[in-house]
Design a protein around this nucleic acid. Structure first.
Lengths: 334, 334
DNA sequence: CTGAAAGCGCTTACAG
DNA sequence: CTGAAAGCGCTTACAG
């Protein structure tokens, strides 16, 4: 007793396969009586259409491929959620792949995803790898880059300026009387953009160049280690901007262990506005980023493109905001 | 210029489509010279096989469907990682779906996944819903349930006993002189099993029944609220077991805000052994669960079954362990 | 080691 | 409103 095919449903409903297919895809075009018989037959047999056959015949897979650097980072979870919320209404499914922050992994992943004939691709990040860009350009499906901005997207980019976020945080520190600063972040492009914006804003203001610590991953332990190093190398540091809230939490914890008063001796800020940062004492200043909205907008752009709407803006800047909490208060605030 | 097909590759290599297909699937069976020509043609054209066509013809999709309650919970991320690590070696891809802790969502998701003709299905949780069980039993593919145990799995279950974990934690508290206890957890089956085991162990020891707080989600804020409520309802409570570390972190934070000394006034424990619990002060006692190993083993079972190996154990208990840290130390330890 | 024929289960494009 | 024919791009099973 293998799985029923469309033909079995048709036989039971006393109609043809194509009518069954229509009931599934455009029921309004089928006479109510026929439709009822077909629906009953589908239910009776527990028929589930074979989407491989459907994809092959229609050249529409109903799949949106999503490439994320890693799935164990809850900050991207909101983006996945937003994207799901947007595309699920159209019956599209997400095929998720993590490339683990490697160009090579990303190429392999794209190849694997493309084999499934996705109707669109959404990428966390902006694609810089040349070979990958070429591959994506030749794909002839919408490709949405996210979580950053670029003047020349593969197709469309929706995100915010990580560079500007870094610069804004530098100004935030300086406005509170802190000029000897440090940056902690990973090797990925977004972290690098935040670092660059941070350093550039300091330079423009005539402040010293920031000490920069590169870390692997976003673990709390990495944040702790980074602060310890910074305070050894540059004991007069007055504030540290961490590329993610989890790293910043590590910073807060290390300070607590070493009896360094935050924010009075050292100010600390993160990025992501994760719940833990709000709940700790001192509460963590952070950059709130539109993670959910990025996913939602990306999904809506995908749907619009699949409908054949005219192409809108190629660069969609959703902005960010700085949420000031205790961890960066000015010393005078005491 | 649409995408090249196997026929285009064959033409360029001066051979037939079926030989190209063989080079892709079982290269050892093709003469080296032919293989070289085909490989060159594939590279030159940037050929990527259409996996919909491949699935349809071979009745093998190369997809493993994974159903998780939610993707924004980092504790499942380790399971996803383990599963990926195991199945990627065989060229299988994960199709991930989250059913958001609802039976209805789970049924819809299974239907959506099944349409893609997965070669196997892995579920976080044990399937209790009757309709879903029937559906899965009729599927005729390996179905692996995880993260709990049951005497009658749909097919095979790999996990640990949540009930036993709850009981073990109750004994842990009692061995440290705490008998007035409380439980905090969600509505999902695993949380309920932990609650039941916790209560049963207390009853067996003649301790009072635990106060039980049901929460929605695993947010820190929920943990805070739960502790506040417990201390209002039962101010003499000596220890609280939270169903997840994140909830327990909320418990720790609430105590800090209310000047309740942990563990001296109130002991706190979680489950999951997340990094944050190790780093906070007091460090959090927790149940370490084999999240990664569950995924890894599930993947290996899938591969074994697809190879056609004889079916092994239907119930694979990977156990758990209690990691004692400061948050549950005995009062006398001071 | 290689290939011609048939078919996987759908949908498209057309006809009526 | 409904259906017969052709075809989507692969692989299986067989033959040589």
């Amino acid at each position: 007793m293998s799985r029923p095919r469309i033909e079995d449903v048709a036989a039971r409903a006393g109609t043809s396969p194509i009518t069954v297919s229509r009931v599934l895809r455009e029921p309004a075009k089928v006479a109510p009586a026929t439709r009822a018989r077909v629906t009953a037959a589908i239910a009776a047999l527990g028929y589930i259409p074979n989407l491989s056959a459907s994809s092959l015949a229609s050249r529409r897979s109903g799949i949106v491929g999503l490439l994320v650097p890693t799935i164990d980072n809850s900050i991207f979870a909101a983006t996945v959620q937003g994207l799901t919320d947007a595309v699920a209404t159209a019956g599209l499914q997400l095929l998720l792949g993590d490339f683990r922050y490697s160009d090579e992994g990303e190429r392999a992943l794209v190849r694997a995803l493309v084999g499934r004939q996705p109707d669109a691709l959404v990428v966390v990040g902006v694609v810089r790898d040349r070979a990958l860009r070429e591959m994506l350009l030749g794909l002839d499906i919408p490709v949405i880059e996210t979580w950053d901005l670029t003047t020349r997207p593969v197709d469309t980019v929706v995100g915010f300026s990580n560079r500007e976020a870094g610069a804004a945080m530098a100004r935030h520190f300086m406005a509170r009387g802190r000029h000897r600063l440090a940056f902690v972040g990973g090797r990925d492009q977004r972290a690098q953009a935040r670092a660059a914006g941070f350093a550039a804003a300091l330079e423009r203001a005539g402040a010293p160049s920031p000490v920069t610590e590169i870390v692997d991953g976003a673990a709390i332990a990495e944040g702790r280690r980074a602060v310890a190093r910074i305070l050894t190398i540059a004991p007069k540091t007055e504030g540290v901007f961490f590329s993610t809230d989890m790293l910043a939490v590590g910073g807060l914890i290390e300070c607590q262990h070493c009896n360094i008063a935050v924010p009075y001796q050292l100010a600390i800020a993160g990025l992501g506005d994760q719940e833990i940062g709000r709940e700790l004492t001192p509460a963590l200043t952070t950059v709130r980023v539109p993670a959910y909205e990025i996913g939602k907008n990306a999904g809506e752009i995908v749907l619009s493109r699949l409908r054949g709407d005219p192409i809108g803006k190629r660069v969609l800047n959703l902005g960010f905001s700085i949420v000031e909490r205790e961890s960066t208060q000015a010393r005078s605030a005491k």
